[in-house]
């Protein structure tokens, strides 16, 4: 373990905050006996952005998907708002998922729906299936959707189909959809990997802005170290399914990066 005191840097402050994510002894094996995640322990409190960095295939995506149970954890505990999500089924799981927003690498918008409909998809956990079928949503949700769309700068695109948007615009819609859920935590799985460098920065800024306004902590998977370091207050470095660095971005040394990504030629 590098940086022996790094583990505790953020874990101790505002420990009683209800808006928190606690992961204890999380293991994930897709194939029995071949662990992808090995005994992950992580505690995220309060606000701000936590970036999980690491090479592809190291389990970052699996970790973030275990949190909202899109991937089934093999062992361990995942607490959001103090509630353990592991072992939840049916309605209880759906209600837990409503409190977790997610932003995807490939945006995952419903291509053939309009932009405003895509935003309202964030409320589908609250709308009765019959009302949803009739395309009816609560007035305050619709008003909020337009408000958010204005904030992300796409007001004039409300009635356009999602497949007409550019990559950056789509991700703005993806973020707005996640915020529509009024989540207690926002997960982002490589939100900038399908975007150009300039748009990537804009998307990160937008996430920081919206999360700050709504007081939502953000956990973001990102393979781009510099982008992660630039925007996050805390960086978690993963390699081979384990956390090998956890601390503020300024504490990361080249030595850490070598251990996380392997080799050193790329650093020069």
């Amino acid at each position: 373990m590098h940086g022996p005191n790094a583990m505790t840097t953020n874990a101790t402050e505002s420990g009683q905050n209800a808006r928190s994510l606690v992961i204890r002894h999380l293991d994930k094996e897709y194939v029995r006996g071949i662990p992808v995640l090995k005994d992950i322990n992580l505690e995220i409190n309060g606000r701000g952005m936590t970036a999980i960095i690491g090479p592809s295939g190291t389990g970052k995506s699996t970790l973030i998907r275990c949190i909202n149970r899109l991937v089934e954890p093999t062992r361990g505990e995942i607490l959001v708002d103090g509630q353990n999500l592991v072992g939840l089924h049916g309605k209880a799981l759906r209600e837990a998922r409503r409190r977790i927003g997610m932003v995807f690498q490939e945006f995952n918008l419903v291509e053939r729906l309009t932009v405003i409909e895509n935003l309202l998809c964030g409320r589908l956990g609250y709308v009765h299936p019959f009302a949803a079928w009739m395309r009816r949503f609560p007035e305050e949700d619709v008003a909020r959707a337009y408000e958010l769309l204005d904030i992300v700068g796409l007001k004039e695109f409300a009635m356009q189909r999602a497949d007409e948007l550019s990559g950056g615009q789509r991700q703005r819609v993806g973020i707005a959809r996640a915020v529509m859920q009024k989540p207690r935590i926002l997960l982002a799985d490589e939100p900038t990997s399908s975007l150009d460098p300039k748009t990537s920065v804009e998307i990160m800024e937008l996430m920081i802005q919206l999360a700050g306004q709504h007081d939502i902590p953000v956990v973001v998977n990102i393979h781009d170290v510099n982008l992660g370091r630039r925007f996050a207050q805390r960086v978690v470095g993963m390699s081979g399914g384990s956390i090998i660095f956890d601390g503020p971005p300024d504490d990361i040394t080249d030595e850490h990066l070598m251990q996380i990504y392997g080799g050193k030629k790329w650093l020069q």
Partner: peptide, 14 residues
């Protein structure tokens, strides 16, 4: 696209 809707906690019908 289905995964995104599922992640929002929507019931199966939605």
């Amino acid at each position: 696209q289905v995964e995104a809707i599922r992640a929002s906690g929507a019931p199966f019908a939605n």
